[in-house]
Design a binder for these strands. Structure first.
Lengths: 187, 187
DNA sequence: CAAAACATGTAAGGAGTTACATGATTTC
DNA sequence: GAAATCATGTAACTCCTTACATGTTTTG
């Protein structure tokens, strides 16, 4: 389980409300750990009960009150303990791979559409990541001498970029393979 | 949800018992969809109730009886329907990325060990995949003219190989970044 | 003789998803 | 006037993990 820890990291990078966290999980940290607002509010409440985070109610005019969360010392300790704990590299769940092998017993053209759709999604993600890299790390507005936090954020982003590029190349391989199967005489 | 569908694909490739399926989920299909035997027995029972698979009890001497499962026509139809259904590319859960960003607020040397451990695991997986590729697809014992099922299995395996290579290169990038951070003067 | 392989399950709990609920303000 | 944004929650359900349970045979 790492949602608690992802929240701790995000709050250490910048304190904020559950709502703000939920939005960060739609970008930034959400690129490698997803969570919905329902999950976040539930876990945040538990973390507050455990003393990992501290909430401060902020009254706002015209808007609902919000709870501003910051990491408490017990939260920092919990994060540190987790960093020392060895974790098994996560198990993979890759629907498309199942679909590809399933297509041998079904409809190859349905698979073709699905692969093309995946290609578009991953292509957009890559564009998005590359834009973020320029904005935050390599462009003219980026810090000339990044600190540790920024260096680490950047290397994680480079991982996302490498993943998307690899995936696009593989999806092309899948498309070529599907065409080859489609063109040859049935055996 | 795709465990049902992964089971259908595996049983179409080769019928077998729940126990045999569980072992396949430790290799082969398990490379991109994991499941424990508890999950498999439970889902298999539900699938039998839904008429997706048919079981035949096989008495054995010296061993517990086993149930030999094969896909029924309703199962084939369900798989085909799923192949036509567009699926969102899966959401990512990457513990190590969370740990890397968390290391900015914790212990960089703990992270270093963890990255090296990951490197070993992925290196072993790559070796294992490559051996499987030679055995089943490119070596002298492999079929000269692969059928559709084998072509598709091969392209999925190539995806796994590409993933492991990309991951190893990225982990090296992470190691280099960590060394650079460690060597420079603190800011 | 111990451990691994064969074979199938139950039970409890934690994690994640989907739907429902409310209500003001700002933007198009 | 509708839709999106801000802000927080509950409830029900499915899914997944971990631990427990049983008993034989083959292999080292």
């Amino acid at each position: 389980m790492a949602l608690e820890h992802a929240i701790l990291v995000s709050l250490l990078e910048k304190p904020g409300s559950g709502y703000e966290l939920a939005r960060r999980f739609d970008r930034s940290i959400g690129y490698f750990w997803t969570a919905t607002h329902q999950q976040i509010y539930r876990v945040l409440k538990r973390m507050e009960g455990d003393g990992w985070v501290e909430a401060r109610e902020v009254a706002q005019q015209g808007r609902p009150d919000k709870k501003h969360y910051a990491v408490a010392s017990a939260g920092r300790a919990a994060l540190s303990a987790w960093l020392h704990e060895p974790i098994e590299p996560e198990s993979v769940r890759h629907d498309l791979a199942v679909k590809i092998r399933g297509a041998a017993f079904g409809d190859l053209s349905a698979l073709l559409h699905e692969v093309e759709r995946y290609r578009e999604v991953h292509s957009e993600r890559l564009t998005h990541y590359l834009a973020g890299e320029v904005r935050d790390f390599t462009g003219p507005d980026a810090p000339a001498e990044p600190d540790t936090m920024q260096e680490l954020q950047h290397v994680v982003l480079r991982g996302g970029i490498a993943y998307e590029r690899m995936t696009l190349a593989w999806l092309d391989d899948v498309l070529v393979t599907l065409h080859r199967i489609g063109e040859r005489p049935a055996r």
